[in-house]
Simulated assay, not measured.
Amino acid sequence: MSEISVGQLARRAGVSVATLHFYEQKGLIHSQRNAGNQRRYNRRMLRRVAVIKTAQRLGFSLREIAEMFRELGEQQDITKDNWQQLSVRWHQALTERIEAMQRLRDELNTCIGCGCLSMDNCRLRNPDDALGEQGSGPVLWEGGES
């Protein structure tokens, strides 16, 4: 039997039925309807749910996961090659996030004991303040821009 019910998939994948419905609504997994109009999932969806749960655990949003799946193409199977592609991409994204968090941590070190959260000087409170160079206050409103 290549198809399983939503309840069977939920039990085997360790998620709730509502979670599966949500994943399907987001286009992450797919089902077919049988003659009784009940959802039936190909067993391949077990691997997709496992990949989704792994990606979530690594901190990726469902939007990011859906984008990654779209890049794999219409193929619903997660093959060894697909997994390799995803793993490389996840590794790169996680490395970038770790580096960003380390920069944030290092900037926080400059604030320890300060407590000012100055709009002029604090890189944590007001990072990359491009509009600050145009003056203080609501420069977009005063400038007539929308």
Rank of each mutant, 00 (worst) to 15 (best):
G143P: 00
M101Q: 14
V17Q: 12
S16T: 15
F22L: 15
A100I: 08
Q134W: 10
N109T: 12
G137A: 07
A10M: 05
C122W: 04
F69G: 04
P138Y: 13
Q134P: 00
K26E: 15
M1W: 05
Q56Y: 04
N121Y: 08
N42R: 02
R47E: 09
D128W: 09
L72M: 12
T79Q: 04
H21C: 05
W141M: 13
S31K: 06
A10V: 03
Q8Y: 00
G132V: 01
A55V: 02
D120L: 14
S31Y: 02
E74M: 07
G137R: 04
Q85S: 11
R43Y: 06
D106H: 11
A66D: 10
E133S: 15
L72I: 09
T54I: 09
W141L: 14
E74A: 14
I78K: 09
L108V: 11
R40P: 02
Y23S: 00
L117A: 13
E96M: 12
V17F: 04
F69L: 07
E24I: 01
M101F: 10
A93W: 04
Y23L: 02
Q25K: 15
R97Q: 15
V15A: 08
R123H: 09
T54C: 11
T110H: 08
R125T: 14
A18F: 10
L20E: 01
G7C: 02
A66R: 14
Q38M: 12
F69D: 02
H30Y: 00
